[in-house]
């Protein structure tokens, strides 16, 4: 069975259309969506209507959650203060533009979807706001896949697609408790994989093209797809709709945000 996994459409109707045609030409049997239908882009309502009309199973993204529940992200979920301020502007705009029935639909989206040994989430199994970056410590990444009770964990949220294979994970543990002898045991994990679907509508891999992934359940083959689309049209709509022009400038470049340096003293209070 051939699956197509899309994520982070962010109100970009042009990009979604281009990706859906690319999926058509690859004859995928089933599409999954990892959320973030709204936010940043100019067409949140049209995107949601299209996803619904195609009956695409969708999990709730960080933006979908925030549109439903009000801004709920800890500052640590933004890569910089500037990104956070812009995120708030986009949130306010989207919050005004979104139709009531669209908001209702976003509220019904589940946190996770499953099919056999596959698990689908937006950020991580813990939270829609957690970034599973490819540079993340391998054991921490392995923990996320195992806590999802899956062999393959599909996620989005970072807007940069990747495949990460984690093989031969081995941990040994030595326990000492007062009044008891020392005990030791070993733990091994079979091959686990993280597949990040990238972003349809707000790619940040350095080019403007939309990204998504194909997954063959029989061969376990993962294909990262990059699809050109008429981004100038979306950029024009961003400006026309009164969204910050810098969004259009960044969209046209597939620009990545600078990463915030990790602050070990920060305990997320979300």
């Amino acid at each position: 069975m051939k699956l197509a996994v899309i994520s982070c459409i962010h109100g970009n109707y042009e990009a979604l259309n281009a990706v859906l045609s690319d999926i058509d030409t690859h004859r995928a049997d089933q599409i999954y969506c990892l959320g973030d239908l709204a936010g940043y882009g100019p067409h949140p309502n049209a995107v949601v209507e299209l996803v619904r009309s195609l009956d695409i199973p969708t999990c709730q993204g960080c933006w979908d959650e925030d549109i439903v529940e009000g801004l709920n992200a800890c500052e640590c979920s933004y890569p910089s203060q500037l990104a956070e301020k812009r995120g708030h502007l986009a949130h306010e705009w989207t919050n005004r533009a979104i139709h009531p029935e669209v908001r209702k639909y976003l509220a019904t989206l589940p946190m996770t979807l499953r099919q056999d040994n596959l698990c689908f989430v937006h950020g991580s199994p813990n939270s829609q706001h957690e970034y599973l970056l490819p540079s993340m410590d391998g054991f921490a990444a392995l923990e996320r896949v195992l806590s999802a009770e899956a062999d393959v964990l599909f996620c989005g949220h970072t807007h940069v697609p990747y495949l990460r294979e984690l093989d031969n994970g081995t941990l040994s543990v030595k326990v000492q408790q007062p009044g008891q002898g020392e005990t030791q045991h070993q733990f091994t994990a079979p091959l686990k994989r993280i597949v990040n679907a990238g972003s349809v509508g707000e790619p940040r891999h350095g080019r403007p093209n939309a990204t998504y992934v194909l997954y063959d359940t029989d061969s376990a083959q993962v294909t990262l797809r990059e699809v050109p689309y008429d981004y100038a049209k979306t950029c024009a709509a961003i400006i026309e709709q009164g969204l910050p022009p810098i969004f259009a400038w960044r969209l046209a470049r597939g620009m990545e945000f600078a990463e915030r340096a990790d602050d070990p003293g920060h305990v997320c209070e979300r």
Binding site: Q81, L82, I246, R250, R253, M255, A258, R260
Partner: peptide
Amino acid sequence: FDPPSLEVLLLEVTGGA
């Protein structure tokens, strides 16, 4: 300045945004 924000800002200004 928030360091990652400053980095974004400088990239944007010098990049012609």
